[in-house]
């Protein structure tokens, strides 16, 4: 009986009755080698990305100090965050300020330079490389250290101001200005949106500009009526990417404040606070909850941008 049914089972695919195994075997025979090649990526993706993300969701409902087992505490981490944690509120405020000011300024700057560079001048690749350089150095420690030196009380910036008889404060260690030095640092690193803008500008059909010049339109009018509308998909893309980058910003604040977020928590970026909770105070559960709240905030921002995009982003196809 057993032998009989086994024989049936093996015979069945040949008869075409059982679909499932044949589908799998067909996929395997067609693409097996491909999946095999993808395997390292799959392992990495599930082991190092999906797994930890799911784990952090679980941890966000626990009390976990890394060395003893996590204790389930329900939503207490989230409740504390929104009812009894002034540092959470402060870090949100700092981060929003940073994003709201740094992203538009950076995009405006990137667009302005891209327009300048798009006029077909000699030595363009060199200029492009020079303007892109700060972004390559990006979130590096060296740049943050440089910034710290530039904006110190006896730094280069104040030496320059002194030429005009202005006695500048110590920008980085004064809570009134410290965040602005970080915003300035972000704006200065406008290279990657600039490159994307440049590529976008090349996509705009030349015949439109020819038509406009035949009509005698002013440069200003050409920019507002042709260049900018046709560039909106690129603006949109850059805005989303830079907003997400802004929320994630960590290194400059960490270096400039020595990891403290001081003076008076004025540079306590959200990710810096998250880092402190996790690695200075060993509250992994709370830090995981902070991470999830940030994820939701970024998702809301991005979702909102997509919703409004159909009112201002023009796709010509």
């Amino acid at each position: 009986m057993t032998a009989r049914s086994l024989a049936d089972a093996t015979a069945a695919p040949a008869g075409g009755r059982a679909v499932t195994p044949s589908v799998w075997s067909r996929i395997w025979s067609a693409n097996g080698a491909g999946y095999l090649f993808l395997l390292p990526w799959f392992i990495g993706f599930f082991g190092l990305t999906v797994g930890p993300i799911v784990t952090s969701l679980y941890l966000s409902f626990t009390n976990f100090d890394l060395l003893t087992d996590p204790k389930w505490i329900g939503a207490a981490n989230y409740v504390r965050m929104f009812t009894a944690d002034p540092k959470f509120a402060q870090s949100m405020r700092v981060t929003f300020m940073f994003v709201i000011f740094s992203v538009p300024l950076k995009l405006a700057f990137a667009l302005a330079i891209a327009l300048l560079l798009n006029r077909g001048m000699r030595g363009l690749p060199i200029y492009r490389a020079i303007f892109y350089l700060p972004s390559l150095l990006g979130a590096s420690v060296a740049i943050a250290v440089l910034w710290r030196t530039l904006f110190a009380g006896d730094g280069v910036i104040n030496d320059f101001l002194a030429l005009f008889g202005i006695q500048g404060p110590s920008w980085i260690s004064n809570p009134r200005y410290s965040l602005w030095t970080l915003i300035l640092l972000a704006v200065w690193q406008f290279g990657s949106p600039m490159i994307i803008f440049l590529a976008g500008l090349r996509q705009i059909p030349q015949d439109m500009y020819e038509a406009a010049s035949l009509e005698g339109a002013s440069k200003w009018r050409v920019f507002w009526k042709i260049t900018l509308p046709l560039l909106t998909p690129v603006v949109f893309f850059n805005a989303i990417i830079q907003t997400i980058e802004g929320f994630k910003s960590f290194t400059p604040a960490f270096i400039i404040s020595g990891g403290t977020g001081n003076p008076i928590n004025s540079t306590l970026f959200y990710t810096l606070y998250l880092y402190q909770e996790a690695f200075a105070f060993f509250r992994m559960g709370y830090a995981s909850a902070l991470a999830w709240v940030l994820l939701i905030v970024v998702a809301l921002f991005t979702g909102f941008s997509f919703l409004t995009s159909r009112f201002w982003v023009h796709y010509d196809d």
């Binding site: 082991g47 190092l48 990305t49 797994g51 930890p52 993300i53 784990t55 952090s56 997400i244 929320f247 994630k248 990710t271 996790a278 991470a291 940030l294 994820l295 970024v298 998702a299």
Partner: peptide
């Protein structure tokens, strides 16, 4: 942001 979680966890993982 998801990347940021990933990176942190990546550190622990590594």
């Amino acid at each position: 942001m998801t990347f940021s979680i990933g990176r942190r966890q990546f550190l622990v993982g590594t």
